[in-house]
């Protein structure tokens, strides 16, 4: 299934092909869960746009369906998506893939300075809607 129009698909394919390093997308959850089925469809489509730089795995053991990423260059990044990554979440997943591949984040000096002062773990849950 295609999720993008031809022109957008081509542009995204080029963008993903130019990632500085490979990224693996991991989908967790039972194949009997409708969210997992749809998520696997979206993720396999995304990976098909740039199989040289992207791959995916499915882990069926987890109770809750979710998507996370891993790369060899950026092991410390910890971003998990709960829900089918369509709509705005599709864009967010692509951005996360770019960050995991090593593309530098863009933030101002003040923000960087404040972030550097954090010294203990913080977990942020962001509740969103896809539109």
């Amino acid at each position: 299934m295609s999720y993008l129009q031809n022109q957008d698909e081509h542009a995204l394919s080029q963008r993903l092909a130019s990632l500085p390093s490979a990224v693996e997308v991991v989908v967790e959850g039972s194949i009997e869960h409708p969210i997992v089925v749809e998520t696997l469809d979206v993720v396999s489509y995304l990976v098909s746009l740039s199989p040289e730089t992207l791959s995916y795995e499915h882990h069926s053991g987890a109770l809750d369906p979710k998507v996370w990423l891993q790369s060899q260059v950026f092991r410390s990044l910890d971003i998990t998506f709960w829900g089918v990554p369509t709509g705005l979440e599709f864009t967010a997943l692509v951005e996360a893939i770019e960050l995991y591949s090593g593309i530098a984040p863009q933030t101002d000096v003040t923000t960087r300075s404040l972030l550097e002062q954090i010294s203990s773990r913080i977990a942020a849950s962001i509740f969103v809607s896809p539109t």
Binding site: T80, W82, L115, R121, I122, I126
Partner: peptide, 10 residues
């Protein structure tokens, strides 16, 4: 900041 983890929940 590697001490920050994110869960993005629909």
């Amino acid at each position: 900041q590697p001490l920050l983890s994110l869960a993005i929940i629909q």
